[in-house]
Amino acid sequence: MKVAYWTLAGLLALFYFYSGALKLLRTREELQPMMAWVDRTPMPALRSLGAVEVLGALGLVLPPLTGVAPGLALAAAVGFVLLQLGATGVHLSRGDRRIELNLGLVAAAAVTVWLATTWL
């Protein structure tokens, strides 16, 4: 179970760290080609979302790695499930039916939640 957790949590952490860093560092114009929804999202909200993603990515990995408050990894995984459910709703409300990535991330985060509850 530990190997499965570390594999999945590591991949999710890499994805969200990269995605969050892009939202924190790039301009709206630089993000537009890869994230069509940013044109109608205020920049402070976009930057906050990036910070949440980076902190969540760290939360998946650092607490179990250090042994300090390992329950935070479970909270981070649950947070990513909720984040992607919200993202799916945003995409659908704006007429974007390309939600495969969002649903895949919901599933991956949900499995990570389950794995975290079995050994943390």
Rank of each mutant, 00 (worst) to 15 (best):
D39P: 10
A45W: 05
L31P: 13
G59F: 01
S48R: 01
D39L: 04
S48Y: 07
D39I: 13
P63A: 00
G56C: 03
V61N: 03
Q32M: 14
L24Q: 09
R26T: 08
P63S: 05
L55K: 06
V61F: 02
A36R: 09
M35H: 11
A57Q: 04
A36G: 15
L58P: 12
P33W: 00
P42H: 00
L31I: 03
V38L: 01
K23S: 09
L31E: 09
T41F: 05
V52T: 11
W37N: 07
P33T: 03
V54N: 05
P42L: 00
P42N: 02
A51P: 12
Q32I: 06
P64V: 05
K23W: 05
L62V: 15
L24I: 14
P63I: 06
G50S: 08
P33K: 01
G59P: 12
P63T: 09
P33L: 00
L25G: 14
V52W: 07
T41M: 15
L49Y: 10
L60K: 00
V61Y: 02
G50R: 03
L46K: 08
A45M: 13
L62R: 02
V54P: 14
P33I: 01
R47D: 05
L24D: 10
W37Q: 14
A36E: 11
L46Y: 10
R28E: 14
Q32P: 09
G59I: 06
P42Y: 00
G59T: 07
D39H: 11
L25M: 12
M43I: 15
L46M: 15
T41Q: 06
L46A: 08
G56I: 03
A45H: 04
S48I: 08
V54Y: 06
V54Q: 04
W37A: 06
R47W: 07
G59Q: 02
E30Q: 15
A45G: 06
L62G: 10
M43W: 05
M35L: 12
E29H: 11
P44E: 04
G56N: 02
R26S: 11
W37C: 01
M34R: 01
Q32K: 15
G59D: 12
L31M: 07
G56S: 05
K23V: 11
V61H: 03
M43K: 11
M35K: 06
A51N: 06
L55Q: 10
R28M: 13
L49T: 15
V38M: 01
L62Y: 10
P64H: 00
L55N: 08
P44R: 02
P33D: 04
A51M: 14
W37L: 12
T27W: 03
K23P: 11
V52M: 08
M34I: 03
P33R: 02
V61G: 08
P63D: 08
D39G: 04
M43V: 15
S48N: 11
E30R: 05
P33H: 01
A45Q: 07
T27K: 02
A57P: 09
P42W: 00
M43S: 15
